[in-house]
Design a protein around this nucleic acid. Structure first.
Lengths: 107, 107
DNA sequence: GAGATGCGCAACCATTGGGTTGCAGGAGGA
DNA sequence: TCCTCCTGCAACCCAATGGTTGCGCATCTC
């Protein structure tokens, strides 16, 4: 049973964090101060959010001199997507089985 | 751009709620008191969680006499899965494009 | 009709969490 | 070297949240 890490969902639950992550995906790697310039929050708040994303495995920091550049990671992303897809498939199959039994009540 | 509803991720962020949802998927529809019997929380807590899941569109209540039976819904689930998959694909394509440019620096 | 059962609502409590300000330290450029 | 810029850490504030108890209401069952 693929037990999914709740940290991924918790990380993506916050709108600021989702905006941050999408900004990284579409704009490439970025730093805390650079990302904070385009958001209505302070640099420290962005730093906290990036730490949460990193703990969830959605992002990885790379040190370049005095700045920390963050880059998206797709592993946890696809793992979470798979978990969701499997759950949906399981339920749909259950529904299909029940419907099939109702229409064709043989042994 | 498929802006995903953060309520789905917020709903799945809580471990109790995930357990609740998985229990519904694998065991079929259930009531608040019935689900609470298998969890270390009170019925009222389960009721609140089910309300959150329902608001997120992950579950739907059906009234049968004096009891409320909850059943999973896959629409929001697959929508969230698609959002994750698309994001991962976008980033992977970006990486592939960069790698291709590095190996073959033509116009 | 009377008691049991399932539910929803409200009040309340403790913890988490997103946000801020302030400060100290390390790397770059003049 | 000195100054600037980016970062990390700590303290603090307030709102949101997961959990509880208690109550009232509706619905079965005997």
């Amino acid at each position: 049973m693929s037990t999914v890490d709740g940290a991924v969902f918790a990380a993506l639950a916050d709108p600021t964090r989702r905006a941050l992550f999408e900004s990284l995906v579409h704009g490439g790697e970025g730093t805390a101060t650079g990302l904070a310039a385009r958001l209505p929050v302070t640099r420290q708040a962005v730093g906290k959010h990036l730490a949460v994303l990193e703990r969830a495995g959605l992002v990885q920091a790379r040190r370049v001199g005095r700045e920390a550049r963050y880059e998206p990671r797709t592993a946890e992303l696809t793992a979470a997507a798979d978990w969701l897809t499997v759950l949906a498939a399981e339920w749909d199959q259950r529904l299909a089985r029940i419907k099939s039994l109702a229409e064709n009540p043989d042994a």
